[in-house]
Amino acid sequence: MLKINNLTVEIENQKILKNINIDIKTGEIVALFGPNGSGKTTLLMALMGYDKYDITEGKIFFKGKDITNLSIDERVKMGIGMMFQRPPVVKGVTVNDLINLAGDVETDYSQLSNQLNADAFLNRYLNDGFSGGEIKRSELLQLISLQPDLLLLDEPESGVDVENVELIGRTINDLLHENLIIEKNGLTQKQRHEKRKRSGFIITHTGHILEYVNADRAIVFIDGHIVCKGNPGEVLNMIKENGFEECKKCDQRV
């Protein structure tokens, strides 16, 4: 689904990501760990095509096509969607306006809005005075309206209370399995997992979101390099016990 080849990304002539290689298969979810400033968000913004994130080396292939030089909206149309950590305020444009413009006109989003308690912010200007939970729920609603195949989730649980983490986590999980919703109850977790079609990255510091969304593997970033790969649970425990310093020591430069 996604192939990142030898990717180097600079912001204002400063190298943030250095020669990164990652492959993601269809249905695979990858957790991204790493201290602040290690390059996790930069990776997602570069995949999304933000102008400030300058790709100076390497290539990105999505569904077999080189998308390195495509514009943001062209990438969205191919099936990439992002849930932003700190989206900007857009005055005069409501969440509803954007969903109606961006989403599929045939789809009725009212049930989904209900499920995400979106009524309180649907008719407010985008992110204007939103609480932490409202930002995440609004981002998720917009993301679902795009029906992406590759999800870029930047700290979906940050700044959110326990109840909202559960709501957001379960909704993301539903989105990942959407084409299986009808059979959901008849299938075991393992079977569902195997049938998952959408892929994605999840940046998380706490790992709480992984209680609801099953990641297949984890990658640890430090200082713009990938230093460790492994089972998400094991990697998270290792970080919790020893901190990122330990990762640095066992740096495999994978």
Binding site: I72, D73, V76, G81, P87, P88, K91, G92, V93, A102
Partner: peptide, 29 residues
């Protein structure tokens, strides 16, 4: 720029994004 790119990340072209922001600017509040 961050507002334009945010709207583009929801599938709008650059022109559509600017148009929506300008319209919002004029009528907001």
């Amino acid at each position: 720029q961050d507002e334009i790119e945010y709207l583009m990340a929801r599938g709008l072209t650059e022109d559509q994004a600017i148009s929506l922001i300008v319209k919002g600017f004029l009528s907001a509040e």
